[in-house]
Amino acid sequence: MMLIRYISQIGKYFLMLQEIFRKQTKWSVMKKLIFKEIDDLIIDSLGIVAFISFFVGGVVSIQTALNLTNPLIPKYLIGFATRQSVILEFAPTFISVIMAGKMGSFITSSIGTMRVTEQIDALEVMGVNSVNYLVFPKIIALLLYPFLIGIAMFLGILGGWMAGVYGGFTNSTDFITGAQMEFIPFHVVYAFIKTLIFALLLATIPSFHGYYMKGGALEVGKASTVAFVWTAVSIILFNYILTQLLLSA
């Protein structure tokens, strides 16, 4: 029964994705919705992303330094390990899981509240494609999500540099040498490809759970929790698939 239920949910999710592009809302209205979503989802997330990225980058640098106990191991590996960890995994994946909680809960609760208060039904009565009206602006807004992840990459490496240098674990020259050593530009491309896929998941899975929820105010909270779990699981699953496809070839 559980398997049938999950397959049914997945089918309904893809039907919702089709519905998003079926009947477009007027551009004059959509433009305002898109700018509002950019403010709510991207701009409002800058602070938490900057804070977490800076200090986790510092933690990665310190932990790497503490594990390099052999004096024969060069100190520039601290910068190398910090760069690789931040660009390949921390910034695109770890931040996205955190955003599944922040953005996902916001999206699910806002759409779920509209469902509870029958605002979605009112949109349908007026002839508006409610799925397009509610979900499409979020997808467009989250096309700017790579910008957020780019900031996370920069601040993560900066935090690693400051923790390594001012913590006395390495010097600035060695850290920068390590950060530049054997740099592969495709790793940044790989990170941004993952980011765009994660952005689509962040926009659509919480929207799905908010749009199709049933009940009252209590169920809005439950839907937000379920949306976070499924968004995080999907991000981790797609992270594995994309890593296999893009890096192991």
Rank of each mutant, 00 (worst) to 15 (best):
D121G: 09
G168P: 10
K194W: 10
S130Y: 06
N129H: 10
E182G: 05
F186A: 09
L143M: 13
N132Q: 09
Y133I: 04
G156A: 09
H187A: 08
L196K: 05
L155Y: 13
D121W: 05
E118R: 15
P185I: 07
N132H: 13
E182S: 10
A191F: 08
A163T: 14
Y145F: 15
F198H: 05
V128W: 03
A199H: 00
I176K: 01
T108Y: 01
I111V: 10
V116K: 15
I139N: 00
L144N: 03
V125L: 11
V188D: 03
M126D: 14
T170E: 06
A152H: 07
E124T: 15
W161K: 12
M153Y: 07
I151K: 09
N132W: 08
A152S: 15
E182I: 15
T113E: 11
F183T: 10
M153G: 07
A152V: 09
L158F: 07
N171Q: 05
I111L: 06
T173S: 10
A163L: 07
M162I: 02
N132R: 11
A179H: 08
Y190K: 08
Y166T: 04
V189F: 11
L155G: 08
V116N: 11
I193Q: 05
Y133W: 13
M114G: 04
M114R: 14
G159L: 00
P137S: 02
M162L: 07
F106N: 12
I139W: 00
K194R: 05
G156S: 08
L123H: 11
Y190N: 14
L202K: 00
M114A: 08
E182P: 07
F198Q: 04
L142K: 04
S130V: 13
D121I: 12
I157L: 01
G178M: 12
F147D: 01
M162C: 00
S105N: 14
T113C: 12
M126R: 08
L155H: 07
G127H: 14
Y145Q: 01
I197D: 02
M153H: 03
L202F: 00
K194Q: 09
L202I: 01
G178E: 13
E182C: 05
P185G: 10
L143E: 01
A141I: 07
D174N: 15
G178T: 09
L158C: 09
I157M: 06
I184R: 14
T108V: 10
S130C: 04
F186R: 08
L148E: 07
H187S: 12
A163D: 12
V189S: 03
L144M: 02
K138S: 03
A179F: 14
V128S: 03
A199C: 00
L196C: 10
Q119H: 13
I107D: 07
I111A: 08
T177A: 06
P137I: 09
I120S: 00
V165W: 01
Q119L: 06
T195V: 12
M181R: 14
I149C: 02
Y145W: 03
R115C: 05
